[in-house]
Design a protein around this nucleic acid. Structure first.
Lengths: 205, 205
DNA sequence: GCCTAAGCGGAACGACGAATTCGGTTACGA
DNA sequence: TCGTAACCGAATTCGTCGTTCCGCTTAGGC
């Protein structure tokens, strides 16, 4: 895990991270530190030794999640069939958002201000940008959307799907399909707002 | 307001409802009863005299919000230009969701189980159904979506837009445009999940 | 105008969760 | 093997929030 950590400390750190990932995924970011500690089989102070606040723990897991997305987008950008790759990426991403209730919670907070999170987010945007560029070339995606739109749309699909997930599991796929059709050029009408830029997304305060 | 209420009590009830609407809209359903009482200029116990729990107060306001949506959908269903009416309805609805942070909070809870809320929700669905039927006839909307999809899509757009609202006000319109294009027949691919039915939406527990 | 009961408000209660502290314990280096 | 420093978990502190209690106020019928 980390250099210079005593053997038992490293083991406990791994347990805490695993437990936190599970508990936050199930209960959202409001889950209590006590529940995480119980699931990890440690005391609460053990968590606070590695993560000064609950927010730091959330940030560590959120960073991992964004990094996974970025890596997946990187793979998709290289795939042969770019249309299929885009759909596949968005399906996996939406499914990941739904499987982790804390993801959307974190995206709403200013955890995204943290440099380590921003770094992975920029990587995600860069990879999605390559993916979209190829998809536009192939005539699969309208010209007036850009990479910044994709994470927003994914969050929307995930949050809409979450409303139904307990009663109609997988209903989110229906709504992702509608959004994907909205991204195709065939039905495109001019969008009423200008595209987002890095300045809009990178919070300067 | 209500029969048999003393004049001052009726006045306070109105103040409480107004204050609660404002505070919940600004702060979400997590806002404290104390803040609502302060804004209304009453004591906390005054709220509890009319609404036994915070949930009851939220339910009363949520019911009003759903009723407003239903009425607006009813108007839209009668309009001449049905495509324009559909877009207008969804724009107003999304804007309303964004202006009231507690709306999405409530939609995620089982407040929708309450009969008075369900009644207005059913009315909303019926009106949207009429609106969609006419829009399909006019070739403005694909055949494989139904009225149950609309509130879900609106929630998704609102929640996606909320992520940006402070930095890029109105960004949600861009995402609603994409969703509206996805609802048009020109780019439609077969949806991967069956349409929702009343059984899916009406929670039986 | 008076009487009475409904209405009022603020203080108090209990539960809960984040964060901190402390005394006992355990792993590593010499 | 032993000393020490790092580590652990339970108990505690502190603040917040929903809800209730109780003594005071006041509206409104007679």
């Amino acid at each position: 895990m980390e250099r210079g950590l005593r053997a038992d400390a490293a083991r406990n750190l791994a347990r805490v991270l695993d437990a936190a990932r599970e508990v936050f995924a199930e209960r959202g970011s409001e889950a209590s530190m006590a529940e995480i500690a119980a699931r990890a089989g440690v005391g609460t102070a053990t968590i606070y030794r590695r993560f000064p606040t609950k927010e730091d723990l959330l940030a560590a897991l959120f960073e991992q999640a964004v990094a996974r997305l970025a890596a997946d987008a990187g793979q998709a950008a290289e795939a042969r069939d770019v249309g299929r790759a885009l759909r596949g990426f968005m399906q996996r991403a939406a499914a990941a958002h739904l499987a982790d209730r804390s993801y959307c919670d974190c995206a709403e907070t200013n955890l995204k201000l943290r440099p380590e999170v921003q770094r992975h987010f920029d990587e995600l945007i860069a990879n999605v940008d390559r993916l979209l560029a190829r998809a536009k070339e192939a005539g699969e995606v309208r010209e007036d959307v850009n990479a910044y739109d994709v994470p927003i749309l994914l969050m929307g699909v995930a949050q809409a799907g979450a409303l139904l997930e307990d009663r109609v599991p997988g209903a989110w796929k229906r709504y992702l399909d509608i959004v994907l059709d909205g991204l195709r050029p065939q039905a495109a009408r001019p969008l009423s707002r200008r595209p987002l830029t890095a300045r809009d997304v990178h919070p300067r305060a």
